[in-house]
Design a protein around this nucleic acid. Structure first.
Lengths: 203, 203
DNA sequence: GTCTATAAGATGATAGAC
DNA sequence: GTCTATCATCTTATAGAC
């Protein structure tokens, strides 16, 4: 996760956020909500309050290049959410349950629209668009590592921490989809509770 | 799950499978692999060895109507897979782990392409295409009930069975996505093992 | 960097012969 | 029921003025 110069929070141009950043954010949100194939570049430009020319100025290789940037943006965003959720408690079981609760609250607040920022795009582009697939893989690996670090810091052995992280991440991912389809926080809350039990039963 | 007359495995017309069935199967597989928006009707017709006219003959209301039928087909298909996996053992923990193993094997055999038959379409159409969303909801509910029945039959109380089914379904759904992105059976196998532990710790 | 106009092709859907 | 031809629209992407 190297930080590039243009990642600074105050862009050089003005009071708000630069055009490139607005485009990436809009793309990330739209891909998250309606997938890669279902989102047109014109809509992205419109939501970002940019013109089509500006989009292609920053992403000359087109939609695919923009999607990679959007997935990487979602990667950082979701990792931040995981990290804040996990930071709430030293007990990893409590921490994971906090994460599930935070995801559930965010999901409800968005009217069940804003789930995982990569799942839809990942499934649509699996085995068909290598650069996007790679970005999705990097994101999932990153999130798993965030969880694994928490478990290791709580005293779990390397292998145990890695495996627990794998299961917890998978469970949260699936619970988020289920919660979106059911339009209910329950899958996330129940899964969070069960994950806490699993973690406790292994400490 | 009422069985309609046209659900018989030997169609009236010929030795093989009827055109309508071929179209639905092709649509189900393609939506599963590349999502709803990323799959054109022409490709569906081609894969089904049918013509565009035939597709619109059986589904006069177009792609949306076809998608509902495709999701319902995937619903039955996945429920069958769950039921066979669960039937392998009276111990619900062993049974669930068998399911995860079966899903992992099927995923590997398809070169990580054939995951859950509804997730991609569900995420793309959330809150935008009510009939499809409803079909996805029915599918997830159906699968959860399949699991809940197994847990109740194993001696779990109603509430416990329902909640365990919710978590196990979510975990398997998420593990399937993770396994596809990682191109590895490990997320499904690890999640299956952990779900077995969770079930045992609650009996 | 921003903007408009437009090219080139794909998409969902329809018409009507057979 | 099957097939081909076609329409209207939308898509990604480019050109070139400013």
């Amino acid at each position: 996760m190297e930080t590039k110069p243009q990642d600074v929070s105050t862009p050089p141009t003005g009071t708000g956020v630069g055009t490139r950043e607005r485009v990436v954010r809009a793309a990330s949100r739209l891909f998250q909500r309606q997938g890669y194939e279902g989102t047109g570049i014109k809509l992205i430009a419109q939501e970002a309050e940019a013109t089509l020319g500006s989009v292609y100025h920053f992403f000359p290789r087109g939609k695919e290049e923009l999607a990679v940037a959007a997935i990487q943006y979602g990667d950082r965003e979701f990792a931040d959410m995981l990290n804040s959720g996990l930071a709430g408690s030293d007990d990893p079981a409590v921490a994971v349950e906090n994460c599930a609760r935070a995801l559930a609250a965010a999901l409800r607040e968005s009217n069940w629209a804003d789930g995982c920022p990569v799942t839809a795009t990942a499934l649509e582009t699996l085995g068909r668009t290598p650069p996007i697939q790679q970005a999705c893989l990097d994101a999932l690996r990153n999130w798993q590592e965030v969880l694994a670090v928490k478990f290791r810091d709580s005293g779990f052995g390397d292998e145990d921490a890695r495996e627990l992280a794998c299961t917890v991440l998978s469970a949260l991912e699936g619970a988020e989809v289920t919660a979106q389809v059911f339009r209910s926080e329950e899958p996330l809350l129940t899964t969070g509770r069960h994950m806490a039990q699993l973690i406790r039963s292994r400490s």
